[in-house]
């Protein structure tokens, strides 16, 4: 019984310790008071619309098509429609500034709760409207150029900035103990995301958006 209690205590302490630890990528960074940079959203507030080519791949299965991202000024939302190349609609989501999401349409063959949850959770990382009060800044100590902003209130999302004046180049969504998803973002000259790659750590899933035109 004693051994059981000791093991239970050791395991729970380890879990608490690991959960509380900073992720590895924050090594060399120190917590800093906010207000030193202006947090630039992935999709700038002036963003209007963009057409992407997308690919969702999981093992040997893959789904490709076109994705239209459109800012709806009236409702302060971004409408995201994913469709086949032949233009048959797969998904129609709407992401609001308030972080709420509306699923406008899902093709019957794709209507799986887990898939919809995964897609909306991933895509919402791109459209979060981050408030100052939600942010914790991490500045580099030596030689490192990037800056990390931890956003509280959405679990743990880490936005990594290569340069203070640019929008984030990477987003890491942390689950209970480890990073669940990494989003790598490249921008064009107008700072519209030109290439967005979601890589999942826990499940074998990769989502790629490539800008076609605006």
């Amino acid at each position: 019984m004693k051994a059981y209690l000791r093991n239970l205590f050791t395991c729970s302490s380890l879990i608490v310790l690991m959960g509380a630890c900073n992720p590895v990528f924050l090594k060399g960074f120190a917590k800093q008071s906010p207000g030193t940079i202006e947090f630039r959203q992935i999709f700038d507030p002036t963003f209007e619309k963009a057409l992407y080519k997308f690919e969702i791949s999981s093992g040997r299965k893959n789904l490709t098509g076109l994705a239209m991202f459109k800012k709806i000024r009236k409702s302060n939302s971004i409408r995201t429609v994913l469709m086949s190349e032949t233009s048959l609609k797969y998904f129609d989501f709407e992401f609001f500034e308030t972080d709420s999401i509306i699923v406008n349409y899902v093709m019957d063959a794709m209507n799986r709760k887990a898939l919809i949850h995964l897609l909306t959770e991933d895509l919402s990382l791109l459209f979060h409207q981050v408030e100052d009060a939600q942010m914790v800044y991490y500045s580099p100590q030596k030689g490192l150029k990037s800056l990390v902003v931890k956003v509280k209130g959405h679990g743990s999302d880490y936005y990594i900035f290569r340069d203070k004046s640019e929008p984030p180049s990477e987003v890491r969504h942390k689950a209970f103990l480890s990073t669940r998803a990494i989003v790598a973002i490249d921008y064009d000259e107008k700072y519209i995301p030109s290439n967005i790659i979601f890589t999942h750590r826990i499940i074998n899933l990769k989502i790629n958006f490539q800008l076609i035109n605006q």
């Binding site: 619309k49 057409l51 076109l66 239209m68 459109k70 709806i72 409408r79 429609v81 469709m83 032949t86 233009s87």
Partner: peptide, 13 residues
């Protein structure tokens, strides 16, 4: 020529 018309956007794809 394929034109996709979405109700929430004026321009056609």
């Amino acid at each position: 020529e394929q034109e996709k018309n979405l109700s929430f956007i004026e321009e056609k794809i």
